[in-house]
Design a protein around this nucleic acid. Structure first.
Lengths: 174, 174
DNA sequence: ATGGGTGCAAATGCTTTGCAAGTAC
DNA sequence: GTACTTGCAAAGCATTTGCACCCAT
């Protein structure tokens, strides 16, 4: 199991992200990463990992804190931030920014790389997957001699419900 | 000139962003917007607009402050933030987030909607335009009954120079 | 034993806000 | 004249950090 983060496995890891997701559990991936950096797999780190993947959805640091409290786990904010940063570094979490000033995270489940439609009015988030966009992105990278590591695509606008609401509001005004 | 931000022009404005860029100067667009909100076109707002469009590139609030100082304009940070927010609202500026905790802005020149490659190592930013990606985005929006207003696409990774550097570093290690 | 981990509280750094005085229309 | 604006300083807020004590290996 030691191949993922040692020198020999470096490029393998970097260029074939899905490999580790097929072969190892989240916990193993995290342990592997910690090992490679001579860091320890503590109870706090384990519990945070567990809660992060217990819910299949976006969250922010504060929400994770509340979730931990509700599960009777007392972990300080500092540790939460420190651990989230590690989980991002080892690829188990992705940072997503929805326009607010605090960071949102989403668990990475390996296969489905998706992007987001964010409603400017009600805040609803619609996820979508589009492989053709991803392919075009790779093309752009090649053209610019750039090695992609991650990306964010986020389209802001109005969802169906809010568009109708706004349309009605304008009609009444007129 | 009053048609852009009054009720009747609302949809026109919303659905045909480039129209105003073809017909009006930046200052007119800004004045128009301020008028529509019963806000005033002050010297501070005028000067900030001027400096923002004097340089064709990304900047952050602090850099604008320095630029203003260098041009012997003494405008407080509070006013800068307040004005930047107005410029974003009326579509003359776009917020771009490059992964740091502070907001970056870029002036909008109407025609060329571009996206960014951001080097994780040296921070270099490469702009690119890809109409096929944009078209696919519109498709996604239609499929999800979503009305797009703006979007951000940002690919993070390693630029050519840094990729070579990192490759060499690994070779030496081995 | 020891190098890393944790919680706490204080620090940071960008951004926002309350307020009194000033200014555009 | 009356809102709206500005600058200043203080407040906010998410995140980071210093430090003393703790714990896994």
């Amino acid at each position: 199991m030691g191949f993922l983060f040692n020198n020999a496995g470096f490029f393998l890891y970097r260029h074939c992200t899905c490999l580790k997701f097929c072969m190892l559990s989240k916990e193993d991936i995290f342990k592997e990463y910690l090992d490679s950096k001579k860091l320890k797999f503590t109870v706090e780190r384990q519990k945070i990992l567990e809660r992060v993947f217990a819910n299949y959805k976006h969250f922010e640091a504060d929400e994770l804190l509340i979730d931990l409290r509700q599960n009777k786990l007392k972990i300080s904010k500092a540790t939460i931030y420190r651990t989230l940063s590690l989980l991002v570094k080892c690829g188990l979490l992705r940072e997503v920014i929805f326009g607010e000033r605090h960071t949102h995270y989403e668990p990475v489940f390996g296969q489905d790389h998706h992007d987001h439609l964010v409603c400017n009015n009600c805040g609803k988030i619609i996820e979508f997957v589009n492989h053709r966009i991803e392919r075009l992105q790779d093309e752009v990278c090649k053209k610019n001699d750039f090695e992609p590591q991650s990306h964010r695509l986020q389209i802001q606008g109005l969802c169906a419900v809010c568009r109708i609401k706004e349309f009605e509001a304008v009609q009444i005004k007129d």
